[in-house]
Design a protein around this nucleic acid. Sequence first.
DNA 1: AACCAGGACGTGA
DNA 2: TCACGTCATGGT
Length: 247
Amino acid sequence: MNRINRLYRSLLKAYGSQGWWPLLDVKGTNPTKTGAIRGYHCADYSYPRTRSQAFEICAGAILTQNTAWPNVEKALRSLRQAGALDAKKIAAMDEERLGALIRPAGYFRQKAKKLKLFAAFFLGLGNRTPSRGELLALWGVGPETADSMRCYAFKQPEFVVDAYTRRIFLELGFIEEHATYDKIKGLVEKELATKEAGNAEKTLIAYQEFHALLVEHAKRSVARRSVRTHQPLSSSNRQRKGISRLS
DNA sequence: AACCAGGACGTGA
DNA sequence: TCACGTCATGGT
């Protein structure tokens, strides 16, 4: 078994299934997760079940850009409270009012624009699944956001690379310091898929879980300092925090 | 009280 | 291509 698969298996053993993407109305059942327990659908991969839930995931993907999830959740609840967690409503809303509703998520002027653009695009899709290229062509949607939408909202086997993934892979020596997004994505899609090759559904679940597990692991054990310095966490720190090396 | 969060985009070199 | 600056609130 290759190192990517080994890491995936040990993370899964350590933290259990994560059940991303978090949805406002879904209750999670994994007590070992950090942060909010609600919002996850651990070991149930039938979500999103509606077009509306797919939109909620996409909106969350935009709102979470460089932003901590609890703040995103506040913005989503604020939208729902206003009856506006809905593509039609958002597409028709003026940016000032939308910005006020999503304020807790930060960057509210930019994100109001992004949400409006995306909402109009989403409506135009009808029931269709957008390609990665279509998403990337939208202003405000970069590689990570596009892959998050594809993987979690539209259930396409597409691995999401984020800052946490990068940090952990660098620490483990899986990648070079300046590895590109596509390089890291390719590494996972090549190595993690080998076992599930030919089974699209299992591949999708593996991509969803692996990304979520990397985030969970990073939140617990990877020093924030390493973002700037790229210095590995010392073993004494690791032990003090009760984190095993996992590979 | 700095520092950072599940980025993306525009700019100048 | 590449390194920065910008966007902005809220938690630690």
